[in-house]
Design a protein around this nucleic acid. Sequence first.
DNA 1: GGTGAAAATGAAAATCGTTTTCATTTAGCT
DNA 2: AGCTAAATGAAAACGATTTTCATTTTCACC
Lengths: 136, 136
Amino acid sequence: MTPQRELIFRSFFEMDKHVSVDELYEIVRSIDRSIGYSTVWRNLKLICRVGLAQEVSIGDGITRYDRLTRIPHGHLFCLGCKKVVEFNADQIVGVLAQTAIENDFTNKGFKVEVQGFCGECRAKGSVDSSETESVS
Amino acid sequence: MTPQRELIFRSFFEMDKHVSVDELYEIVRSIDRSIGYSTVWRNLKLICRVGLAQEVSIGDGITRYDRLTRIPHGHLFCLGCKKVVEFNADQIVGVLAQTAIENDFTNKGFKVEVQGFCGECRAKGSVDSSETESVS
DNA sequence: GGTGAAAATGAAAATCGTTTTCATTTAGCT
DNA sequence: AGCTAAATGAAAACGATTTTCATTTTCACC
Ligand SMILES: [Mn+2]
Ligand SMILES: [Mn+2]
Ligand SMILES: [Zn+2]
Ligand SMILES: [Zn+2]
């Protein structure tokens, strides 16, 4: 346990949002100017490896790190302001567990995501009108 | 409408699996040796822009292109052999639509994914035992 | 069937987040 | 204190994606 690791872990777990390497790097950097980018990256990977967080990728090419909570949740992702809103996915997880069984899969993880536009972005306009609903 | 575009479109829509740029590039390349990578890339992007396909990213850093069908579906992704199995997501989409409304989101798309190990991979062994279930 | 503007193509280079390398430092143990 | 394995930081490597740009092609119009 090095001071860098402690700072990175502490900062990450104090955070509520989904943070990218760069974001966490800037945060710890404001406390310890000498910390390296790779150290932040490595420690985020470590946090994932030990099962305390999970990588999430939401369309833009940036990997974010999401603290694992006991209650499973999904993400509402606003295509306008890039905001992420979480929602409880208990019900869906039940369905998915059943689906996995039916297809002879063991499930190790889920990802449930809805892309759209939040109320604020709709109010501000600049939301294109095609309302295509689809699942990949 | 150029011959390259026609070949790329035709090849893409004849395909049933989730194809990456490289994969489609190799396929069209076997028919027209002179076709360029960027042309394949641009046309896949175009297919997405006009709403006939969707980009999907499944953990590995490779973007794949999934033809949009009228019936919404989710993906079972095998962490062992990387196979993708589709399943009907009608039921889940209903729940998600409701969730979006509750959170004042318009929904433009969904992504439902389950990671795990398929029967074959479990039979072959080499499946680590931790069965952590989680949703990002 | 020309003609010209706008769009598409292909090769190469640029981008940019991620990952690795390697020399140096540090933590943890005896 | 002395030793060894692990961690760190700076820089370079990587690799998929995206852009650039010179050239070619399509297509609407005459
Ligand atoms: Mn699919
Ligand atoms: Mn989350
Ligand atoms: Zn928004
Ligand atoms: Zn498998």
